[in-house]
Design a protein around this nucleic acid. Sequence first.
RNA 1: GCAGCCGUAGUCUAGCCUGGUAGGACACUGGCCUUCCAAGCCAGUGACCCGGGUUCAAAUCCCGGCGGCUGCACCA
Length: 565
Amino acid sequence: MQDKVLELAIRRGFIYPSYEIYGGVGGFYDYAPLGAILKKKIEDKWRKIFCIEEGFYEIHCPTIAPEEVFIASGHVKNFVDPLVTCENCRESFRADHLIEESMNISASNMSYEEMSKLVKQISCPNCGKKAFGDVYSYNLMFKTAIGPGGKRTGYLRPETAQNIFILFNRLYEFSRKKLPFGITQIGKAYRNEISPRQGLIRLREFTQAELEYFFDPRNESIDRFKLYENEKLRLLTRENKEFEITAKEAVEKGILINEIFGYFLALTKRFLVEVGIDEKRIRFRQHLKEELAHYARDCWDAEVFTERYGYIEVVGIADRGDYDLKAHERHSNVEMKAFVSYEKPVTIKMKVFELNLKEIGKTFRKKAKEIIKELENADEKLIEEFEKKGFVKVCNEVLDSRFLKVKEVEKKVHGEKVVPHVIEPSFGIDRILYCVLESAYRERNGKKILSFKPDIAPISVAVFPLVSKDELKDIALELLRKIRARGIYAIYDEKDSIGRRYARVDEIGVPFAITVDFDTLKDSTVTVRFRDTTEQVRISTAEVVDVVEELVNGKIKFEELKMKK
RNA sequence: GCAGCCGUAGUCUAGCCUGGUAGGACACUGGCCUUCCAAGCCAGUGACCCGGGUUCAAAUCCCGGCGGCUGCACCA
């Protein structure tokens, strides 16, 4: 049986298992009407915190990419598990783990052939027989073909990040060629999980919200850090120590390697709290060395404690260093660097080759271009060699003083090119949405309530006539129209008793209900009811739309409204 | 991917062993009633996961698939 939260989410239209009429497919969920609004509100909260307030911009890119992208990024090679299956009992194992455990040697750099040989000597931990087949790789990326004929291999992206790295030069230009800058993307990513389970926790198609923060590796401070430096963070370090500490202290003590980590951990916590997750359930866990992704130098996961699944990872904040930009530089032959100016230009004396281009051209013809390039980029070693021997060998040609000589030049250097480093907070929106649902779930007298924050709830307001009579209905419908005109999601219901209608909207987490009753006809006031306490206040029909808008936006709280009245 | 258990309206479930008209509760829809927290009355919609086999006859027995749960394995 499915758990209560998932059951409610499916029954009341937050999510549906996908492709049900054809038997369903594991690892895919539809966002139903209420879930789609909830997801959008969570994403908009993320945009507010990680884009608008930070001055970072969001981009949207294709979800299909040509093979080259993931060859460069390392996903084709590294996004795989070497598996081996016992021919006797059909049990599958990670081949490298098997070898490491039973032979006590490191298998991380072994080829599949080597592993296949070794694995034959190992008894199956399940049935005890030596019956392992060959080691095969299982790549978690979905493969597809671009265009007719299947000539060009493509993959569905396993993370949104690569698109941003590929666009580095464009985005650097857009950012007025200044570090640091941040670019975000909210979009779908795909991983062909071996066994997706646990509802929204492990999906084959999921939504990521990612920020790539590009910075000069020699300057790891971040101005805005002081805004969040006193935020308390619960950390679980690689050494398995768990404690609470302020962001500032964690950086000062070197637990977090720089202010940027401190800043994004604090910002992440703020986001999770603002969508309605209890801060007591949030912790940041540092990845173990062997757990790190192929691109990561360090990584802290934000984990949320759930009743259903225990601690689950909802955010990964990774220091990707210069791994990705360098990888794409190498594979695409496009330079991906930022120019960082020095505070003052530096004058340096250096030796360079002065070339006799005419002579080189005449002598080496077509090869000249290549030779010139080599000599222009010559390093100290080569120049030294020339000074010692009187000639150098470049591109298999010998060049002596007829072609070049050494001269000393003074150069004013204004700065240098650096490959920016990247710190990447990456959010799993679907998992966060589950945490939001679970955090909001309550039971009251046997009735189920989703106690969303007012600005996160999919439907913000319900409007009811106390009983289904025309004179009350007309007023209620007019209020409904006015509320909707403000861009607020509102619903109307006149069926069944008022108590039943309150219960119905409590179950989908509508925070406020307006009821038109017989007093409304006398004094033009209506009641506004708050979901979490069932308390009511009377507000004039003239004011109620403004008041409700403030309540929904969180500008005032219901308790404050109650005090005023 | 392996193993065990499971799959009946929107939900929870009876029926399955022992083959023969699939029953209930809640929810939902229409109507009546109803002056604030799942009231009542009347009427109604709605289901055997898919495919194959056995049989005169399959929700029920058998096989395969799909899906779910649990365990193992995996999870950047």
